[in-house]
Design a protein around this nucleic acid. Structure first.
Lengths: 266, 266
DNA sequence: ACACATTGTCCGAAATATCAGACAATAGCG
DNA sequence: CGCTATTGTCTGATATTTCGGACAATGTGT
């Protein structure tokens, strides 16, 4: 999925209110949509209610309103709902409105076509890493990239760049201790991660191998905003056994394109 | 944009309530998002309030909540807001969850790459036509396709297929009389449109020239669901002077791919 | 400088949403 | 079949949201 992570990070959207605590409908809507995104699959209304800690009748009311608006839609025959067409339209409006983002999308398309590899646009969401957009390779090694899935930052090449503006202390406070444990049980020493962050900052790119996914090699380069800040990265996700010469070539391309997408002043 | 229409159809989302009529926050959210989608550009909060007929303080409250949730984001320096990153993530979840939709997206990609033309997935929204997804051509004749923009049905090749399940009477009642007037002032006779619908139903495809846009030729083929219903179409938007041989070739490809995307039972 | 318009926030009372629970219908299990 | 669980909807009173208006600050135009 993201910088090669292959597992769904199961975190319940458990920020439900104490029993009886009233919440505005709007806040319920927001929590419901977040929970559904985290779940990544259609859910029954009763389960949604349990998941977000809302009364069943309220949840039905909200879901029915969102169904009517096509922000949700019914899926299958067992009373499940998931995101609806309207979300796709809103999302398209978001991603195609902004000229910069459009350039990013075109770059993703071009790079995937030119190289036959998986290309991703990545960023942070809270204290987690996410893939924001992706063009999968058309080659035999297909990475299944889950846009929007939250992944622990230390698992990722991008993460090492995206925290470059933070001091060691700040990074330490930002990342939950449990996030240093990889999917296969290995643990990244925080000190090692901090020096990776420093190295990425100095080099202007970052590479990781077999962290989130034992079979992938990930490389990331920063896209800088007008103030020099890095809040998005451009990444390749490669088979771990990609020859070094090929990797060098791809890294050079990645850095060049990311630099091209960086805004003036950087 | 859609089946070649080149103008933004300015319709105010003027279904605001009578003054003083209380509305739930949720309903306000839905109306606000719809209005913003119709507007297609960032708006100031005061203007949104006017547009949807809501009190300014309520609108500020709602916008602030949606900003916090990243469903909206600030744009520029003049207090404008537009859709936010969370929408993109919700939309991606929608369009990549469903295996059928994923196949459609892949087909769009492939057809655009193979032909160098603009390919669209189209459908209805209420009594208007919209482009649901699109892959623009990489050639010199770039169609600017606005996914989500509502367009009068008689302006489009797809529209002639999407109403195929309706009787003449039903079509007549469904389409507002003003929708037969083209962007350049010409008027389509309803009787002519009805027979176009019948012909499209019989032929299993539809072609129009220079309707929504004087410079484009549009062809559409139906994607049938498991019950044989047509609620999506696959389209090409071509330069109006495309040679007939080329058009025949593209039409054959279009029909074949649309058939391939149609679900069993059709 | 002045006048007017807009922005973002705050306020309080009337309107009503939200909650917890109930009900009927349906589904699933032993 | 009986029992339990779940679903979708309905109910009414308390909690609180929504509305219209006000205020201070800022912006715009003459």
């Amino acid at each position: 999925m993201s910088d090669g992570a292959t597992g769904l990070i199961g975190t319940e959207a458990g920020a439900g209110p104490r029993h009886g605590e009233r919440r505005r409908g709007i806040d319920r809507v927001i929590v419901l949509l977040e929970a559904l995104l985290r779940h990544r699959a259609p859910m029954r209304v009763g389960d949604i209610a349990k998941m977000i800690g809302a009364p069943r009748s309220t949840t039905y009311e909200i879901v029915n309103s969102l169904l009517e608006a096509e922000m949700l839609e019914n899926v299958g025959t067992e009373g499940c709902v998931y995101f609806g067409r309207a979300m796709h339209l809103f999302g398209w409006a978001y991603s195609h409105h902004n000229a910069h983002y459009r350039r990013i999308i075109e770059t993703l398309d071009r790079m995937a076509a030119e190289t036959g590899e998986t290309v991703q646009l990545c960023g942070l969401r809270g204290n987690k890493y996410i893939v924001l957009d992706c063009r999968d390779s058309s080659g035999p090694f297909r990475i299944s990239s889950d846009v929007g899935v939250e992944v622990p930052i230390p698992w990722t090449a991008s993460g090492r760049l995206l925290l470059g503006h933070m001091s060691e202390e700040e990074v330490k406070d930002f990342i939950p201790p449990g996030d240093y444990k990889l999917p296969d049980g290995r643990v990244i020493a925080p000190a090692e991660f901090f020096s990776d962050v420093a190295l990425a900052r100095q080099q202007g790119f970052s590479e990781t191998a077999a962290l989130a996914d034992r079979f992938t090699w990930c490389m990331a380069a920063p896209i800088r905003d007008g103030h020099g800040a890095v809040n998005k990265t451009l990444c390749f996700v490669l088979p771990v056994d990609t020859p070094e010469a090929r990797r060098s070539e791809l890294l050079a391309l990645l850095c060049e394109r990311a630099r091209g997408l960086s805004l003036a002043g950087s």
